[in-house]
Design a protein around this nucleic acid. Sequence first.
RNA 1: GCCCCUCUAGCUCAAUGGCAGAGCAGUGGACUUUUAAUCCAUUGGUUCAGGGUUCGAGCCCCUGGGGGGGCACCA
Length: 506
Amino acid sequence: MTDDVPPTSAPVTTSGLAGERAKRLDKVATLRQAGTNPYPYRFDRSHTVAQLREAHGDLEAGQETDERVQVAGRMLLKREQGKLIFATIRERESEVQLFVSKAVVGEEAFAAFADLDLGDWVGVDGTVMTTRKGELSVQVITFQLLSKAVRPLPDKWHGLSDTDTRFRQRYADLIVTESARRAFRIRHEVIASFRRTLHEHDYVEVETPVLHVEAGGAHARPFLTHHNALDMPLFLRIALELHLKRLIVGGMDRVFEIGRVFRNEGVSTRHNPEFTMMELYQAYADYTEMIAITTELITRAAQDATGTTVVDIDGTSVDLAQPWRQAKMTDLTSAAVGEEVHPSMPRPALVAIAERHGVVAAPSWGTGKLVEELFEATVEASLIAPTFVTGHPVEISPLARTDRHDPHLTERFELFVGGRELANGYSELNDPLEQRARFEDEQRAKEAGNAEAGTVDEDYLRALEYGLPPTGGLGIGMDRVAMLLAGVSSIKEVVLFPTLRPEVWE
RNA sequence: GCCCCUCUAGCUCAAUGGCAGAGCAGUGGACUUUUAAUCCAUUGGUUCAGGGUUCGAGCCCCUGGGGGGGCACCA
C-alpha cells in the first residue's frame, strides 16, 4: 500500500497529506522567489547539541549568558506563545530547546521562524540561556532553514505503531521511535565491541568474496545470480568459512570477517534472507578456545552496549558473567527422551524413538541427522540460559574434526540462548583425505535430492593439501546477538531495512 | 507453501448491520517562560482492492493484496 502522491501533481485539496505537502512545497517556492535556498549547502556548528549540553548542562534556572553558539538539528516540537516561540530540535540523541523572541529577532525573522514546519532541519546562531523552569535553551539571534521537510512527521506523541510503515519507512521510524534508535545503537555497539576484542587478540580483519562459484560452508539454499561478462552462474555466499580457512593455510593465523551472508529460506522473527555473520579462525587452537572467546565476545559486548552483563531473556534475568552451561547433544537428548540416544545406535532404533516424539524420519537421514532432529524437537527450545551444546554427529558436521574420543561425534559446539542458536564453532577438519570423503558424502546427499547439501570444493581441498594447521573456528550470528542485547524478539528490529515484498506504487 | 490475526484522515485510534468520529498534525485566532504548552474555532475519508449477501455493509461472505504471529523450511 502506498500513500504517495506524484511529485508533479497539483494541489487538489487544502488538507490531508496532499494538501499538507502542497502547502510546504509552496513555502519552498516562496523562499526561492525571495532568494533563500530552502536546501542550502552547509552549516557550520560551534557545538553539537550533545556538546552544548555537556558544556552548559549545569546552568542554573533563569540564566542568560553571552556565550554565542551555533547548533543544528531537526525540529520536532514547536510551541508558539504570542511573541515567543519555543521549539525543540534533536541532533542524534540529544535535544535542546530554541527560544525565539520577536523582540530579539525582529518581526520578519519571527514570522519566518513561525512558518517553519515540524520535521524541518534548522541551524541557529544564538546565546546560551536557561528558562525560568531551568530548561537549557538557545536564545536565537539568527536562524537558517537547512532542509525543508515537505512531508509531515507521524504523530508527535504516539509515533508509528504500524509495523508495515515502520519497516518500509525506516527513516520515519528512526525519527519518531526511540526504541528503534536504541536497538540500532546497541547493534552498532555490539559490532564495535567485537572488533575491539578481536583486535586485542591480534586477529586480522579480512574481506572475502560474496560471489561464490560454489556456496559452501553451511547447509542452506543459496541465491543464484549470473555474471554477464564471464557468462557464468554465481551464488551469493551462505557462509564465510571456506575462504577464511584458506587464509589460515596462507599463514594469516588469526583472521576474522564480519559480513553479510544470504540464505534463500523463509522469513521469520529469527530469519532474514540476508544477515550478518562474524566468523573467526585461529591456528593452533581447538574448539575449547572457541568456547572461551565466544563467551568473552558476547559478555564484553553486553557490557559495552548496555552497561551491564545482565540480560532479560523472555522475562528471565540472566547474568552473562556467570559461567555458561556446557552439555553434550547426545546427553541432553537422551535425558529429554528418557532413553539412550547416540549416532552409533542402529538406525531403526533411532527412527522408533524419533517417531515417539513426533519426528518423521526422512529416508535420507542417517543416525547423526536423526539425533540432531531429536535434539531440535525435544531440547532446543528449552535452552534459555546460555548453553554450549557440544558433540554434534559427524553426519551433520562435514567441516568439523572428529571427536578425539568418539568417532561418531565431532569437536563442535553450538551456543543457544533464549532457545535460539547464536554461535557455532569447532575444531576444524584439516585432513584433506577425510575432507574429500566428507564432501563426497555431501555430494551424494545433494544428488539424492537434499538441496541444502554441499558439493566437493576442489580448490578448498587443494588448499588443505598445502596443510591447514590445527585450527579452531567460530561463527556468530550478529543479528541474534543484537536481538539478545537489545531485548527484542524479532530480527526486523535489528535489521535496518528488512527484506519485504515490494511496495505497489500506483 | 499452510493456519490465525490485522488493514478506517498524514499519524494514533473509535464506530450493535442503520448519518464515518476523536486526539495529534494542518488551518484561522488569543497568549513574553512554554516543554506532549494551553484555550477558542476549523479543513480533511475511494474505511487496502474487487465481487457478493442485504432495504441498508467500515462491520457479514468470497477472491486478491500488504503487514504481523505461528507452522513448515532454516545442520
